[in-house]
Amino acid sequence: MADTAVHADEHVDHGGHYSSTGLSNNKLAMWMFLGSECLLFGGLISTYMLYRGRHSENLGPDQVWDIPFTSASSFVLLMSSLTMVLAVSSAVRDDDRNTKVWLSVTALLGALFVAGQVYEFTTFYREGLGFTTSLFSSSFYTLTGFHGVHVSVGIIMLMSLVGMISKNKVVGDKKETVELFGLYWHFVDVVWILIFTLVYLIPA
């Protein structure tokens, strides 16, 4: 996407573009986006923190959480970070086959996590915890919903990337593209690390 490029100079980034710092435009942009996302998730987490105690007697966090289940799905997402980093390292070695394999495994683990979240939401809903039941439920579903959407978008992007690598249709630097997707994915994982501890493990 870094389209403006002309000058041959000692400062040339990996895509062959002129660059004052020698860094990739895309990667800088991705890190800025992630920095910006900190304030998005920060706002959602803070709202949850503020409202986590505001619920009816028997439908609060301490009553509905299923820690073993959530731990398992957290573990799944954590492992997807490992497979993602393995995909990046395969891409660096120009190993398309393994890149595709690890990307697919990452997407699969991500899908497993989302499936777990859907299951969890359904269970809560059956127990009577709807989106508008209490301030706690609204802020909880909003926070985890936003995270779930991020994971889902990530899954779609990963699968698209696998397809694009197969058909050799990646525009730009392939290694860097995989790396950028990786940064996004790890960030989503990092957010879950916060959510898992702050929302699930610390009692309200």
């Binding site: 992630l34 920095g35 900190c38 920060g42």
Partner: peptide, 16 residues
């Protein structure tokens, strides 16, 4: 890269 991310992180933690 660290700078870009940490500015966001510090602002988020600080403000919130």
């Amino acid at each position: 890269f660290s700078l870009m991310f940490y500015i966001g992180l510090v602002l988020a933690v600080g403000c919130y």
